[in-house]
Design a binder for these strands. Structure first.
Lengths: 139, 139
DNA sequence: TCTTTAATGCGACTAATTCGCAGTTGAAAC
DNA sequence: GTTTCAACTGCGAATTAGTCGCATTAAAGA
C-alpha cells in the first residue's frame, strides 16, 4: 500500500488528543503541501482530488479542531471567507496584491515595537494584532 | 412639520447623483449622529426607532451605495459582520478591546512611514491598509 | 478482540447579505 | 403645478459561508 510520508501535523494532532482518521490524514497532507492561504472550499477541493468522498463538513470541523488546538492559524480576509495557514514560527503581517489576490508575508520588528509603545500610551496591553497592507506591484 | 437639521451627508449624496429619499434621510441622520462603528443590524435598529417601516434591505442597499460612492467606509471585523464609519479626515487604525468590543481609533505617522518603506523594499506600492490591534485594558 | 467515544457523511439549519419583482416616489423636464 | 421615468422601496425568496443533529463508522486503548 502506498503510504504517504507522515504529515508533520500528524503527530501534533495525536499529541493534542485528537484522532488521526483517514479524512484527516488527507487534509493534513493538503495543509502540509500548501504554501498559500487556502479557504475551506479550496482545501476541500484539494482533499477531494486525493480522496473523493471527504465531506466539506469534515473539512470545517477539522480546521476548527486544528485552530482550537493551536495547530493552524485562521484569518478572515476582507472577502469574508476564513483562510488558513501553518502556525508561523514568528508572527508576521500580510501584503495582499489587490490585482492578483496573492498574499505575501512580511515582518517588521520596528512596527511591532511601535505598536507596543502606542498601546501602552493608551493604557492597553496588546493581546494580538493584525496588519493587512493592500498593494499593487510597482512597475 | 418638524424638519430635522439637514444631514451633512445629504448634500453629498445628491452631488453623487443619488436620490435623497425618505428612508435615506433617516439612515443619514443615524449615520451623522453615530460616533461608533455600527453594523447593519444596529443601523437598522436605530433607523427603525426614528421611523418604523424601514426595511433592512434598504439599509444594506443604502450602505452599499454610500460605500461605492466613497461617502462612508466599510470594514469587516473578525466576527464577519460589516461595520461602518464616517470617512475619516485622515486615515487611522483601531484598537479593539477584546473584553468589551469597544473600538478606539489611533494614528501613528511613524507606522505609516514604516509601511511605505517596507512595501517599497518589496516592490509594492500601497493601495490601502488596515491595522487592528486587539487589546485589554491595563489595570 | 472488545469497547468506548470521537469523528464522519449527510442533509437540514442558521446568519448575514443579496436579489427579483411589483409598486412608489424623487426630481428633472415640461 | 403636472408629468414622467428611472431610481428606490419593501417584501419575501435566494444565496453563501458555516454549523449542527443524528445515525453510523472506526481509531486506539484495554
Amino acid at each position: 500500500m502506498t503510504q504517504t510520508a507522515p504529515s508533520i501535523l500528524a503527530r501534533r494532532i495525536q499529541e493534542a488528543g485528537l484522532r488521526l482518521t483517514a479524512p484527516r490524514r488527507v487534509i493534513l497532507q493538503v495543509l502540509d503541501s500548501a504554501d498559500d492561504h487556502p479557504d475551506v472550499e479550496e482545501l476541500h477541493r484539494r482533499a477531494q482530488a486525493i480522496e473523493p468522498g471527504i465531506s466539506i463538513a469534515t473539512v470545517y470541523r477539522t480546521m476548527n479542531a486544528l485552530t482550537e488546538h493551536g495547530l493552524i492559524e485562521r484569518q478572515r480576509f476582507d472577502d469574508g471567507r476564513m483562510r488558513y495557514e501553518a502556525v508561523p514560527e514568528e508572527h508576521h503581517d500580510h501584503f495582499i496584491d489587490v490585482e492578483t489576490g496573492e498574499v505575501v508575508e512580511f515582518r517588521s520588528d520596528e512596527i511591532e515595537r511601535l505598536q507596543q509603545d502606542i498601546a501602552r500610551a493608551h493604557g492597553f496591553e496588546i493581546v494580538s494584532h493584525r496588519l493587512d497592507i493592500f498593494v499593487r506591484r510597482k512597475r
